[in-house]
Design a protein around this nucleic acid. Structure first.
Length: 912
DNA sequence: TCTCTGCAAAGAGGA
């Protein structure tokens, strides 16, 4: 049995006399049922009393196998010998993070702040792991080596290694593996499984075990170890997997080898009540050659087995608790948390320099002068905000087991009740799993990494999988076979990790001149001689001025592009002008779509000296020809990457090791109003100068918590340095009547049609369209219709019905379905309308409509009675919705609701 | 219960 609750009170630890002598204990009270229950008292005995330092009221706590006793009519609990105490069990800690924390908490922290640079031991280690997996899956050794070395072509090229040399290195390690495998197989059947994804909801730990052999975790190391014992942190890592395997140990949960047949019932076990944990672990030091012998024992095996006792497992859980508590509190580790020995540490210098620059407490001490207080304050606040975002990612992990399959499916985060139709092993040893397709919609898309399971992502057998196909059949690939019954979105911390490293790079490694501008100490400067009296774009003064500003910038330039103002065209012209001046340009944006749109504009202008960095599924079909493949000959790959004058990538990819290894003269960031400050910095860090293009009057960055990340660098800089910015003020999209409201409300009336033909355009100008055929209520280019609907959750079915009626009126008047778009604020309403809408009419959320336009737009506002809900508070979203239409815009909504707010009242007055 | 895109992840070792 387990006890779980929210900590209400933590007492001071105290010492009591028992028949075993003096012992320390810690008392705390818990409120069960997520804090709703009556408080119960729990006594923690030694081993767990250190929690006094790590547990605060409000934290979630779990105690396994507690002892129960009645005392004064009350039930009290205490830890037993078998107990584990888990702090914030829903916070999933990575096994590799526990390994790092045990080595040194400060090293763990530094690893989070700074991205691991590209280095050979890591790349080689990864290769050896991949080949190891292939060997277990029965693949030919030479074939596996050749294949994986080719896959790492780009990384190896950047490191200056040749394929042959690396293949030789990997073969040496692989020989030790092969040798050991052949010994182990002698006479007995070996129950092997490679690369098992393990998620422990009881201990709040996740990780991927290199291999499991007869139920025992096996960890592969590429190094040498001639001592008798495995390295301590390696044992900790294996013990983590032992904990997870124990938790999975209940009946029906260990049988992952259901290649053909197996239990196909799809039933799911509850978490095991009395788990049994593997009592040994194996470490495989593959640099130990056959000639090496243990110093003491004379053994020649690369493998070392060690015993995993209950006490060691409890130690591992305590380390894990320290990480979870640190994360939840938002603390910075000092190194004093454990017995780290700084004098032996290879990271000591880095550790001291970072501590010195940030003026942080560190066991190793500090070197150097701190950066200015305003920069440290910025880092502290940004760190806090990013960690807040991280906790949202962890809440997503917790939903994997806290929500039912139905709730996950309703949330669009899982495809459930799939019917497996087959699985087969591919030539490379990986598995291809197939299931019958489903009508259900979800966030899962082709190319995504997801959790594939036989029914439950944490209680059944689950594997990380890549989605290959989502059509009539669902097809995924995995390392090991699974009965494919369910797919779950697998949350990732990559985004928050990259934000963290980007802000620290900017402050700790950033150029001092650049930081003066970023922190408002000096305005950006411009060098007019670089423009040399040129006129850049003739037909539009603001566009020409924007290019001039970007070309002459010594630090940065800001270009604000309201809807329809030719922002992307201007951006492409800027890129060409910079390249003409001999510059190397990094072109970036938040979304793949925006990056590819910008590239399209460049290609339209005849420019193709481009390398596109990104995943195969992320890059649009017509831009694949520029995509950099990571596979191939090392020298060729590097030549391709370093030869192009324009490198294009999303800001997330700018944080990748490949882009991190490059330097640019100018970084141009598109849609910069939609990016968090750290996101923008990831691109900007890579260049001497930068140009931000965007519009802070359109959609802001998407962040889950209301904090400092919700304001973009774009907005901050344009407000700090209006002189370093240009606003494109001529729009080529909307008629005069349509653009009026947006111009008045968001651009001080400065936004104007680019010419009389734009201003005066009407539906009737389109071939085959008759304005006379429209009903009276739609006669004007901007109209308002009140269907007297009622809001139900985030939908309004009556309004959806009416929206479709309006769409039909436009189609009846001769408009093509492709020329009509429907926009709604909520996804629920979007699907409500989609169900009824005629084929070919685009129906989508405001967010997904940003960047595109239609001849006619119908806007469903959903709300009735009042405008309750955060989505109506940010008027910028409405600006986007209202500025998609060229010739006609129809607002559908409840008059009373809209009139309840001054902004929407003005909107109503304009539309009627 | 608001909007939602990126990212394969995890990977090494040196007294």
């Amino acid at each position: 049995m387990t006890l779980r609750g929210v900590v209400a009170e933590v007492e001071e630890p105290k010492t009591v006399s028992t028949r075993y002598g003096d012992r320390e204990l810690l008392e705390l009270s818990l409120r069960p049922d997520g804090g709703r229950g009556d408080p119960v008292t729990v006594t923690l005995w030694p081993k767990w009393t250190e929690l006094a330092e790590w547990v605060d009221p409000g934290m979630d706590l779990l105690v396994t196998d507690p002892e129960e006793e009645e005392w004064n009519g009350q039930t009290r609990y205490s830890t037993s010998k078998e107990s584990f105490v888990v702090v914030e069990p829903s916070y999933l800690v990575n096994v590799t993070d526990i390994r790092g924390w045990v080595q040194c908490p400060r090293m763990y922290y530094l690893g989070k702040l700074t991205a691991t640079p590209l280095n050979y031991p890591v790349v080689k280690g990864t290769l050896v792991h991949e080949v190891f997996g292939d060997l277990l899956r029965g693949r030919d050794l030479d074939e596996a080596i050749e294949d994986h070395v080719a896959d790492a072509g780009l990384d190896l090229g950047l490191l200056g290694r040749t394929a042959d040399e690396v293949a030789g290195d990997v073969r040496e390690n692989a020989r030790a593996i092969e040798n050991w495998l052949s010994q182990g197989a002698l006479g007995q059947e070996d129950d092997w499984r490679s690369e098992r994804t393990l998620i422990g909801e009881r201990f709040g730990i996740k990780g991927r075990a290199d291999a499991i052999r007869r139920g025992v975790p096996v960890e592969l190391k590429t190094g040498k170890n001639l001592r008798k014992e495995p390295r301590f942190q390696d044992k900790v890592q294996a013990a983590c997997y032992a904990l997870l395997l124990g938790e999975y140990g209940a009946e029906g949960r260990t049988t992952g080898m259901a290649a053909d047949g197996g239990d196909a019932s799809g039933t799911v076990a509850e978490p095991a009540d009395e788990p049994t944990y593997p009592d040994t672990g194996t470490l495989l030091y593959t640099k130990n050659s056959v000639l090496d012998r243990h110093e003491e024992t004379g053994d020649l095996s690369p493998a070392k087995d060690f015993t995993i006792g209950r006490g060691f497992l409890q130690y591992v859980v305590r380390q894990r608790n320290q990480i979870a508590a640190t994360a939840v509190r938002g603390d910075v580790p000092t190194g004093y948390e454990s017995g780290a020995k700084c004098e032996y540490c290879f990271e000591q210098d880095t550790c001291m320099v970072v501590a010195g620059r940030l003026d942080e407490e560190s066991k190793a001490g500090q070197i150097g002068k701190p950066v200015p207080e305003e920069e440290r304050a910025f880092l502290r606040e940004t760190f806090r905000a990013i960690e807040e975002e991280r906790r949202f990612v962890h809440r997503e992990y917790a939903k994997l087991w806290e929500q039912s399959a139905e709730e996950r499916a309703d949330d669009d985060r899982a495809l459930v009740n799939l019917e497996p139709v087959g699985q087969h092993q591919r030539e490379d040893g990986r598995w291809e799993l197939r299931a019958k397709g489903t009508e259900a919609v979800s966030k899962i898309r082709e190319g995504d990494v997801v959790l594939a399971s036989d029914g439950h992502p944490t209680r059944g057998v689950a594997e990380l999988a890549r989605v290959v196909e989502l059509g009539e059949e669902v097809v995924v690939t995995t390392d090991e076979p699974v009965e494919l019954r369910r797919l779950d979105v697998y949350p990732s911390e990559l985004g928050v990790d990259r934000m963290l490293t980007a802000v620290h790079d900017a402050v700790l490694k950033g150029d001092a001149d650049r930081k003066d501008v970023l922190f408002g100490r000096r305005p950006p400067e411009f060098d007019e001689s670089r423009a040399a009296g040129e006129t850049f774009i003739g037909n539009n003064a603001a566009q020409g001025e924007a290019v001039r500003l970007a070309v002459t910038a010594e630090d940065c330039a800001i270009v604000q592009g309201p809807p329809g103002t030719g922002k992307t065209y201007t951006l492409a012209t800027t890129v060409r002008e910079l390249v003409d001046r001999g510059e190397r340009v990094l072109l970036s944006a938040f979304t793949n779509r925006a990056v590819d749109n910008a590239l399209e504009a460049l290609v339209d202008q005849g420019f193709t000296d481009i390398v596109r960095v990104g995943t195969e599924s992320g890059v649009r079909e017509d831009m694949q020809r520029f995509r950099l493949s990571k596979r191939g000959d090392p020298d060729e790959r590097v030549a391709e990457l370093e030869g192009a004058s324009v490198v294009a990538a999303t800001t997330a990819s700018c944080g990748s090791r490949v882009v991190q290894s490059l330097d640019f003269d100018t970084a141009i960031v598109d849609e910069a109003g939609q990016l968090t400050e750290p996101g923008t910095l990831a691109a900007v860090n890579r260049a001497d100068r930068f140009v931000l293009v965007g519009d802070h009057q359109q959609l802001p960055p998407v962040v889950r918590a209301e904090n400092s990340l919700s304001e973009s660098l774009f907005q901050r800089l344009i407000e700090t340095y209006p002189d370093a910015s240009v606003m494109l003020d001529r729009q080529y999209r909307m008629s005069q009547r349509i653009q009026w409201f947006s111009s008045q409300e968001f651009y001080d009336g400065q936004l104007r049609p680019a010419g009389p033909e734009i201003a005066a355009q009407r539906l009737g100008d389109l071939p085959g369209v008759s304005e006379e055929a429209l009903p009276d209520e739609l006669a004007d280019p901007v109209t308002f219709v009140d269907p007297s609907g009622r809001r139900v959750g985030n939908t309004n079915p009556i309004e959806a019905e009416r929206v479709c009626g309006v769409v039909h009126s436009y189609l009846d008047a001769g408009l093509a379905p492709e020329d009509v778009g429907v926009i709604a604020p909520f996804r629920a309403q979007v699907s409500e309308i989609q169900r009824r809408a005629p084929d070919g009419v685009a129906v989508d959320t405001v967010d997904r409509f940003q960047g595109s336009d239609k001849q006619v737009v119908v806007l469903s506002t959903v709300a009735t009675g009042d405008l309750d809900g955060p989505i109506f508070e940010d008027h910028r979203r409405m600006n986007v919705a209202l500025s998609r239409a060229k010739r006609a815009l129809c607002l559908v909504g409840d008059e009373r609701a809209l009139a309840s707010d001054p902004f929407y009242e003005r909107l109503l007055a304009w539309a009627r």
